[in-house]
């Protein structure tokens, strides 16, 4: 556990020092969501209908955009190879880095999302479901995104390629989350969706770190 806490603390401190860089995906999220009324129509009904999809797809992209930061600077300055040589569990190391990344990107996203949702006339009574789905799903996005970044670290075309690899894996998260929200909008039970997302989260927490460790090793070969 020592390694987990030490790396978590280290990464959070670094994120704090790079506040402006960390804020970029959030600004991206805000701007892209505001483009939809301009691009589609400011019509109240139409916007509230597409709001869950818009918020979710934009959140996916913002999270994906931010993923590169999780390993990039550590890879470039040689810190990552040092971390991989630390005696101790590499899985905990990966979990610590993903957790730190989620705290610095995922959490602010969850806080901003309801505000942006209201701009799209998102039904107020379904806001809670939006936040809950984001809360359960953004860690999944961070975990899966980490695989893509780890696989493409040593390549020059890393960023766009890693999105290409990982976006298909985001589909279940997108589907379950938006379905949960539309169920909440029409006052239907939503616990089943949360349970599914939760199961997906637990599975990802257990399995994905191993894939990330393997991918990091390949990148350092």
């Amino acid at each position: 556990m020592n390694i987990f806490l030490a790396v978590l603390q280290r990464d959070l401190k670094l994120a704090l020092r790079r506040r402006r860089e960390v804020a970029n995906p959030l600004v991206f999220f805000i701007i892209v969501v505001s483009l939809f009324p301009l691009g589609v129509s400011p019509d109240r009904e139409l916007l509230s209908e597409i709001a869950p999809g818009v918020i979710w797809v934009t959140a996916l992209l913002a999270s994906l955009m931010s993923m590169d930061a999780i390993f990039r600077s550590d890879y470039d300055d040689g810190s990552l190879e040092q971390l991989l040589l630390l005696p101790g569990s590499k899985v905990l190391l990966v979990l610590a880095k993903v957790t730190a990344h989620w705290i610095s990107i995922g959490l602010p996203l969850i806080i901003i999302a309801p505000v942006m949702a209201l701009l799209l006339y998102f039904p107020a009574h379904a806001i809670v479901s939006l936040m809950v789905t984001l809360l359960i799903s953004t860690p999944i996005l961070s975990l899966l995104g980490a695989v893509g970044v780890a696989l493409t670290l040593s390549l020059r075309t890393g960023g766009i390629l890693s999105s290409l690899l990982i976006l298909p894996f985001y589909i279940p998260v997108l589907i379950f989350s938006t379905m949960a929200i539309s169920a909440a909008t029409s006052n239907l039970p939503v616990m089943g969706y949360y349970a599914l997302l939760g199961a997906f989260l637990i599975m990802s927490l257990i399995l994905v770190p191993f894939a990330v460790v393997a991918a990091l090793k390949v990148s350092h070969n």
Partner: peptide, 23 residues
């Protein structure tokens, strides 16, 4: 090796993707 890792992650995810799309 990189492709193998992606394929293994994919094969675990395919049933979930398939099921979610059907649903």
């Amino acid at each position: 090796k990189a492709a193998s890792i992606l394929a293994i992650v994919g094969v675990i995810n395919i049933p979930i993707i398939h099921y979610s799309v059907e649903w």
